[in-house]
């Protein structure tokens, strides 16, 4: 049963559960009792409200709200630009984040810690604080405009804030750690020997990177991209504070319907669409999505 050279089995071989009691697992009754409080909380605070919201969008069994959404090109345009912004933010995070993740995984411990701190500090800074900082940086007489004017690059203040560009920059900033951490945790598990072996077999540094490190890091890249994209789709705070009427996204549109126009059924329909798009995306990429990857690397 247990020779020294046996392949280590997973700690809990699920397929080997016996019919008779085993002390390795809590009994079914205990397990259900342990999970029950969370199930109740999720039912009250998550499942029921979301179901109610979706129900409201089909109020009276009618598709009227959804028809409105489809009929008005403005709303479909917002949906399209939400997907577009999420996509741009994901790509930007990937391009900027990958070198950082690579550096974190490859550097000596001391410097890597400094780089890691640069990633973790923004991650655990409130989104509000960061959005506020972007408002201050980008506003009409804000820091960026002042610096540009002082350097003589611009004559008058540029319109930076309340544009789609500002939304993309601020969202990239907020979401980049979610890209860096999964890539980092994948790269970190790669033994440097692979890269050395490739170099030894005659590949240049660049070739070794392209043909060995990059393909092996793809699971992390996918996990980070999916996480980034999904979070970007539903982002509210940052686009609400940094964006303007011309850069409406699904989330800010829902916010506007509920707080300004008080059109709850239509807001419900918009929410249902946003939820559906998100869930379709999550379902398609459920294999690559790993929520735990980012958090695990905290330890």
């Amino acid at each position: 049963m247990s020779g020294p050279c046996e392949v280590p089995q997973p700690a809990f071989p699920r397929q080997r559960r016996s019919t008779a009691a085993s002390a390795r697992f809590y009994s079914r009754g205990v397990s259900v009792c342990l999970a029950a409080p969370l199930v109740v909380a999720l039912a009250i605070g998550f499942v029921y409200p979301v179901t109610r919201l979706v129900g409201l969008s089909f109020e009276g069994g009618s598709l009227e709200q959804h028809r409105r959404l489809v009929a008005e090109p403005l709303y479909l345009g917002v949906l399209a630009s939400t997907v577009k912004v999420a996509f741009i933010v994901t790509i930007a995070s990937l391009l900027l984040g990958f070198p950082v993740a690579y550096l974190m995984a490859r550097l000596r411990h001391g410097i890597a810690m400094v780089v890691a701190a640069c990633v973790f500090i923004p991650l655990w800074t409130s989104v509000l604080v960061r959005s506020y900082a972007w408002v201050v940086l980008l506003q009409r007489n804000g820091i960026v405009n002042t610096l540009l004017a002082d350097a003589g690059i611009t004559d008058g203040p540029l319109k930076l804030i309340y544009t789609q560009g500002a939304v993309i920059v601020a969202m990239t900033h907020v979401l980049m750690p979610f890209m860096i951490l999964p890539i980092y945790s994948t790269l970190q598990t790669l033994p440097p020997d692979y890269n050395r072996a490739a170099r030894n077999l005659g590949a240049g540094a660049f070739r070794a990177f392209i043909s060995v490190t990059l393909p092996l890091s793809l699971p992390g890249v996918f996990a980070g991209s999916v996480l980034c994209f999904v979070l970007a789709l539903g982002f509210y705070i940052t686009p609400a504070l940094v964006g303007g009427p011309g850069s409406m996204l699904m989330a800010t549109l829902i916010g506007q319907q509920t707080t300004v126009l008080l059109d709850w059924p239509f807001a419900a329909a918009l929410s249902t669409v946003l939820l559906t798009v998100t869930l379709i995306f999550v379902f398609l990429f459920r294999k690559t999505l790993s929520l735990s990857k980012g958090l695990h690397s905290v330890h």
């Binding site: 049963m1 247990s2 020779g3 019919t19 008779a20 085993s22 002390a23």
Partner: peptide, 22 residues
């Protein structure tokens, strides 16, 4: 004694009470 999969560890676990015997 016995090779891997001979049931010796399972037998021990039953004596210890970690596995209920069928």
């Amino acid at each position: 004694v016995g090779p891997s999969g001979s049931g010796k560890t399972t037998a021990l676990n039953m004596i210890a009470g970690f596995e209920g015997p069928s």
